[in-house]
């Protein structure tokens, strides 16, 4: 299968890429291409031009400074899953990246492409949301930062404007007493998340929970935060019983059903996977 014809641009800087995007309203950004090229081959997308940002140096690399980890938009799932820095600072993100697709896909797919595509059944959005990631975006008017909670708008819709590029993702480094984890129940054929749960918990000096976050992919049209579960955990002793009780209150009103799983099934699965992610996060805190 061939994509329909398009013009190809390979800018060498973010500024140049943004300029090309501004002048080509029907252009799409190409990073690893593992979401975009398949939909172009199926002719579900037919952009007039592709702006290949895969070789822009400023979009590569993982660096750690001032209590945060900065991951370039073109860093691959493989690099994230295998990065000692990510494993130590944000284990939920490394775990989520390591469970995407398969080996070949992980060598090509990028964090920036994944978050910009905002596939509800992908793995990184919930991890970014739970970890409180900040997304850095550049457009013709300059750069701005968007919190993950404001970035995911709806099904495959983000806060990115058509002439903006996601340049990097900043994740806070886990402090002492904080642990995170990602637990996924995948569709056995596609590998996409029927339900993926990302959890972050923080324990205070006395061992009780002082902060928690639990977010899901795959359950509704976009990554969602289960704020009622997090609120129920704060102040608890984070025992298995406390986690089960908090997760029992989970409600995702807009859970979606499809040919693979009903909305009710996904709700129940979210309780199970949420509890698993919370227990692992607790054990790491």
């Amino acid at each position: 299968m061939y994509p329909s014809k398009f013009d190809y641009h390979r800018p060498s800087s973010v500024q140049e890429a943004v300029q090309i995007l501004s002048g080509n309203p029907d252009a799409k950004v190409l990073a690893g291409g593992h979401s975009l090229i398949p939909v172009m081959k199926l002719r579900l997308a037919a952009p007039a031009a592709l702006v290949d940002i895969g070789r822009i140096g400023a979009l590569q690399g993982i660096s750690r400074s001032n209590g945060s980890l900065r991951i370039g938009a073109c860093v691959t799932y493989h690099e994230i899953a295998n990065s000692a820095d990510v494993q130590a600072a944000a284990p939920a993100l490394a775990e989520a990246a390591g469970q995407i697709g398969d080996r070949q896909v992980r060598y090509r797919g990028t964090i920036g492409g994944n978050l910009s595509h905002a596939d509800p059944a992908s793995d990184l959005p919930a991890a970014a949301l739970a970890l409180g990631a900040t997304l850095h975006v550049t457009g013709p008017g300059g750069s701005r930062s968007v919190s993950a909670s404001d970035f995911f708008v709806d099904l495959m819709m983000t806060a990115l404007q058509p002439d903006e590029i996601l340049t990097g993702v900043e994740v806070p480094v886990a402090q002492a007493g904080t642990g995170s984890a990602y637990a996924k129940w995948e569709h056995p054929a596609s590998g996409y998340a029927l339900c993926g749960a990302a959890a972050v918990v923080t324990r205070g000096a006395g061992g009780s929970c002082t902060g928690a976050s639990l977010c899901f992919n795959g359950v509704s049209s976009t990554a969602v935060a289960a704020t009622e579960v997090a609120a129920g955990l704060v102040g608890s002793d984070l025992s298995d019983a406390a986690i089960d009780s908090a997760v029992g209150n989970l409600s995702i009103p807009d859970a979606t059903g499809d040919m693979f799983a009903s909305a009710g099934y996904r709700q129940e699965l979210a309780k199970v996977m949420g509890a698993r992610a919370l227990r692992t996060a607790r054990d790491r805190a």
């Binding site: 090229i37 060598y107 090509r108």
Partner: peptide, 12 residues
Amino acid sequence: QAVKSCTVLAVQ
């Protein structure tokens, strides 16, 4: 690195 060549453009 092992990649799926049906999902990579020759120009990439």
